[in-house]
């Protein structure tokens, strides 16, 4: 009975879904175009296409005109870095949510971001930048995740509530360690560097920085993409997954390492930008459903577009740049609150 009634809207829904990915790609392209054109020096979007078109045919020459320099040397690397970071953070969140079978976890909730922040801050304090900073962000992000895994594994079981609590403990611990570093940092040199870096910003984006970030993020994205069907299986009950020939204990770690690689890299190049990994996958799930074969690309596209837009707001809303973490938290916290209520209401009803 209900099957027949469902049929018509279901078809409409399906056709809508088929058009969803072209729409997302288009949305991302528009967001990037808008981001490149907006700012104190306004570049019309027709001119942007002209500049990029010319550059595509001649990669050797140097930009000369003012608008060429702004587009090619300032805004394009910044927009690309924001898009890459947004995609990486969102995909990392979506993958972790699949593995933990819970839409409420994210790199930030699990303490990975704070661990990465400590690693990065330590690197700055010791006078390192570039690859070392990136490596330390990754290593301490992974250390935080390991600690959460150890803390929440009780009697051979990992309860989701314990994971979230352990994540908060580990996150708070690393946040305190970051404060310790700030306390002992040289107030004239390393302290401001640490503080500005932690606030989260793409204002220092250059082609070199983009080149530093791309390998780690791409590696993480490709790994999660390759494991997209495995994620469907990993989101089953543990015994069930094992009976289907999956080894959850081992395969989970591919996802953990990929998520940490993406989060750590993004923290290294742009500081801590919270909430993306929580809010974006949830929005993507509303549009394309739970199947990770659709959810992962949808999270990547939405995350990229979201962070490009947020970053553009951050640098155009006021005369001074607003820290990105502030904007994403202002949107993310209320969304998380709604999610939490929905989740426990559904769990209570089921």
């Amino acid at each position: 009975m209900s099957a027949a009634l469902d049929e018509a809207p279901r078809r409409a829904w399906l056709s809508l879904r088929l058009g969803v990915f072209p729409a997302m790609v288009g949305g991302l392209a528009l967001a990037m175009l808008y981001a490149i054109s907006a700012g104190r020096f306004d570049v019309p979007w027709t001119r942007i296409i002209e500049i990029l078109w010319a550059r595509a045919w001649d990669l050797s020459g140097n930009p000369e005109a003012m608008d060429e320099r702004i587009v090619e040397l300032v805004r394009l690397p910044r927009v690309l870095l924001a898009a890459m970071s947004g995609a990486a953070l969102a995909v990392g969140g979506a993958a972790l949510q699949g593995v933990f079978r819970n839409p409420l976890v994210s790199p930030q909730i699990l303490g990975i971001s704070q661990g990465g922040a400590f690693g990065g801050a330590l690197a700055i304090l010791l006078g390192y930048h570039g690859v070392v900073l990136l490596g330390m962000s990754f290593v301490f992000g992974l250390a935080a995740l390991l600690l959460v895994g150890l803390l929440s594994h009780i009697n051979g079981r990992t309860e989701i509530l314990t994971v979230i609590l352990a994540g908060m403990i580990v996150g708070a611990f690393f946040a305190a360690l970051v404060s310790v570093l700030q306390f002992i940092a040289d107030p004239n040199t390393s302290l401001p560097a640490i503080v500005y870096w932690l606030m989260g910003s793409f204002s220092t984006a250059t082609w070199a920085r983009l080149g530093l970030a791309v390998p780690g993020m791409m590696l993480g994205l490709v790994l999660v993409w390759a494991l997209r069907y495995r994620l469907n299986l990993l989101s089953l009950d543990e015994a069930e997954a094992r009976s289907l020939g999956v080894n959850p204990d081992r395969e989970r770690w591919f996802i953990f390492i990929a998520a940490t690689l993406m989060t750590g890299t993004s923290v290294a190049v742009a500081g801590v930008i919270g909430w993306i990994g929580l809010v974006v996958p949830h929005a993507a799930r509303l549009v394309v459903g739970d199947d990770h074969r659709r959810l992962i690309p949808a999270s990547a596209l939405l995350g990229a577009a979201y962070l490009v837009v947020i970053d553009t707001f951050a640098r155009t809303l006021t005369a001074a740049e607003i820290p990105l973490g502030v904007l994403t938290a202002l949107i993310g916290a209320p969304v998380f609150a709604v999610l939490l209520r929905q989740h426990f209401r559904r769990a209570g009803a089921g």
Partner: peptide
């Protein structure tokens, strides 16, 4: 294996859930 309460939170179609039975033949990627 048929668990007592399997895949309870999974928002996939019936066919998708049945297809998961083929997982062992698919390999990691």
């Amino acid at each position: 294996y048929v668990p007592q309460h399997g895949a309870s939170q999974v928002r996939l179609s019936g066919l998708e859930v049945v297809t998961m039975g083929r997982a062992a033949r698919l390999g990691l990627f």
